[in-house]
Amino acid sequence: MTARPANAHQAQILRALRDEGPNSRAQLGDSLGLSRSKFAVEVDQLLETGLVVHDGLAVSRGGRRSHTVRLSPQLRFLGVDIGATSVDVAVTNAELEILEHLTQPIDVRDGPVATFEHVLDMATKLTAAGVADHFDGAGVGIPGPVRFPEGFPVAPPILPGWDGFLVREALGQDLGCPVMVDNDVNLMALGEQHAGVAKNVGDFLCVKIGTGIGCGVVVGGTVYRGLTGSAGDIGHIQVDPYGHPCACGNRGCLEAHFGGAALARDALAAVRSGGAGSAGELAERLAVSGTLTAADVGAAAAVGDPVALELIRTGGSQVGQVIAGLVSFFNPGLVVIGGRVTGLGHGLLTAIRTQVYRRSLPLATGNLPIVLAELGPRAGVIGAARLITGRVFSPA
């Protein structure tokens, strides 16, 4: 089992090296506010455990040159980001650099056992590729509500058969390492915070639009999960009391109107109803494949299909209305929009921005950037690795 830091100071050193990379002993000690003698004792203990190593001599600041220290290059973490229709699995080092990354289509409705068979098979392929012969920890993202302290999903609307499945215990036993589980959008937020568009932003919202819709809420640099882990479940905020039925059992939820499946449903209905939708790019795609997807809507909008553009404008406006309420309540410094549906492009972003800037008070929106996520599918696996390193780099 991987050694753990003995105290909070050692944990602070490990996390600083994770987030900022190798550093000289002198500069690292100064940045953490530790006395040189205290810092030297803690680093020497970490060197003995093998969690950190010396990495040559630093540039002289005058006088005796300091050694550079870094996290052990032997540490390996597994990041798993499960979506409704695909799973991403990656191996990272302790500085959360992706060493190898695989993506595979799945259907989470097949249940957790089948899904994690895919995950374990992908993990085996990654070890066979030579990037890891073990894992020091694994982080897992699931597209549904997760009871965070215990690490299992609770009544996830788009995951039949997953309710109460002990993900942490099951996967930890198979992998032989600590496992942590969280909602997928929280991990996306962690990834964008670590290496993406939200780096160095303390308070922000990260909205993921895919088959489902969720929001990661970061407060003071830390993901806010609420009492049990359900904070940010904005996909089930009602936008139309007489609207479409939702997988959660209610009616008119945001997710039922602008999740990936809802967008494909509305595009199909518009084309089949005749009128303006019976011609154009969407109609041609339907004729070729026999069905339509959210990706088809994005591609059609890119070439000016009027039906696709209207679907994006309407759905983006509904998302923007919900985000406007969040902005008024939370007053974030940044809003990040990510997920597969963001392939719809800047038409979606424009519709969201219009509603937020129109509906929220100027004090909340005067300096509020609303931007597309930067990392794409890498965000979830980086966030998953950051989640588990947060545990491994904590005192036992």
Rank of each mutant, 00 (worst) to 15 (best):
N23S: 12
N23E: 15
S24P: 01
S24T: 09
S24H: 00
R25W: 01
R25M: 01
R25T: 06
A26N: 05
A26C: 00
Q27M: 10
L28H: 13
L28K: 10
L28P: 04
L28T: 06
L28A: 04
G29L: 12
G29K: 10
D30W: 09
D30G: 06
D30C: 04
D30M: 07
S31Y: 05
S31M: 04
L32A: 05
L32I: 04
G33T: 06
G33Y: 11
G33L: 04
L34Q: 06
S35V: 02
S35E: 07
R36A: 08
R36W: 13
S37D: 13
S37Y: 13
S37N: 13
K38D: 07
K38I: 14
F39V: 06
F39N: 03
A40E: 15
A40D: 13
A40H: 15
V41H: 13
E42K: 14
E42I: 02
E42Y: 08
V43L: 13
V43S: 12
V43R: 10
V43H: 03
Q45L: 09
L46K: 08
L47P: 14
L47C: 07
T49H: 08
T49A: 00
T49S: 11
T49N: 04
G50K: 01
L51H: 00
L51P: 02
L51W: 02
V52M: 02
V53I: 10
V53Q: 08
V53E: 13
V53R: 02
H54S: 06
H54A: 01
D55P: 00
D55L: 01
D55G: 02
G56L: 12
G56D: 04
L57F: 11
A58F: 00
A58T: 01
V59F: 10
V59G: 13
V59M: 09
S60I: 08
S60N: 13
S60Q: 11
S60G: 14
S60T: 12
R61H: 12
R61S: 12
R61W: 03
G62V: 01
G63T: 12
G63R: 14
G63M: 11
R64Y: 09
S66W: 05
S66H: 06
H67F: 09
T68Q: 08
R70I: 06
R70A: 12
P73V: 07
P73W: 09
P73E: 02
Q74G: 10
Q74C: 06
L75I: 14
R76I: 03
R76M: 11
F77I: 03
L78G: 11
G79W: 05
G79T: 03
G79M: 09
G79H: 05
V80Q: 10
D81S: 03
D81Y: 02
D81P: 07
I82C: 07
G83F: 10
G83W: 04
G83P: 08
G83N: 04
G83R: 06
T85L: 06
S86V: 08
V87M: 06
V87W: 04
V87Y: 02
D88M: 07
V89M: 01
T92I: 03
A94I: 00
A94Y: 03
A94V: 03
A94M: 00
E95C: 13
E95L: 12
L96P: 02
L96Y: 05
L96A: 15
E97Y: 08
E97R: 15
E97N: 15
I98R: 15
I98W: 14
L99F: 14
E100K: 14
E100M: 14
E100Y: 15
E100P: 08
H101M: 11
L102A: 10
